[in-house]
Simulated scan of single mutants.
Amino acid sequence: MAHSLVGFYGMLGDMRRLRDLIPESYVNDAALRQKGEDDHSIGLLSGDDDCPAFDRLWKYCRGYDGGSLAAACTLVDGAFDIAINWSGSIHHASSCKASGFCYVNDIVLAINEFLGSFRRVIYVDIDSHRDDSVQNAFVDS
């Protein structure tokens, strides 16, 4: 829907699509990945019904997290002034557990990328409830 709106307003010509992959070391492979045919799946980590395993889940997670990481990298490199991941802000997962319909936390990945080049990063969450997973990821810094 967002892509359609951008196209309706004639802005697609001003945008470039980026692709990247999340670093595999971010997730605990032994806990998250189950061997699949051509792909990997992420296991049911939360113990709740809000994070079920489904076909090509690993590919899905790499897609949305890769989008946020690619966006952060282009901003750090100075290639772009603005970067958007329409499927991003999957921010309730922690590095050891899926939670709240979120399997891997793309916000933490992006912030870590920024912190490699910038001393401070501000994260503003406009969701309707507190985002404890991002807070917990940086509680000691």
Rank of each mutant, 00 (worst) to 15 (best):
T74I: 00
R19N: 12
S89R: 14
Y103F: 14
R17S: 14
C73Q: 14
A110M: 05
S68R: 02
V27G: 00
R120F: 12
C61G: 01
N105W: 07
L5W: 09
Y9D: 04
D14Y: 12
Q135G: 11
I84Q: 03
D55G: 13
Y26D: 11
S87Q: 04
I111S: 00
H40P: 00
G78A: 02
Y26Q: 02
V27N: 01
D38W: 10
V6C: 08
V108Q: 01
P23K: 06
N112L: 06
V134A: 05
L32Y: 15
D39N: 11
W86F: 14
V139F: 10
F101C: 00
I84P: 01
W86I: 07
D38H: 11
F138Q: 04
S95W: 09
W86K: 09
S99C: 13
F8D: 08
S94V: 07
Y64M: 02
L109C: 01
I42R: 01
D140A: 13
D20C: 08
A93K: 05
L44R: 13
M11W: 09
A83K: 04
V76Q: 04
L5T: 07
S117V: 02
R56A: 07
S25K: 10
Q135T: 11
S141D: 11
Y103N: 03
D38Y: 12
D29V: 13
Y26G: 01
D140F: 03
S4Q: 13
H3C: 00
A2T: 07
I42W: 14
F80I: 00
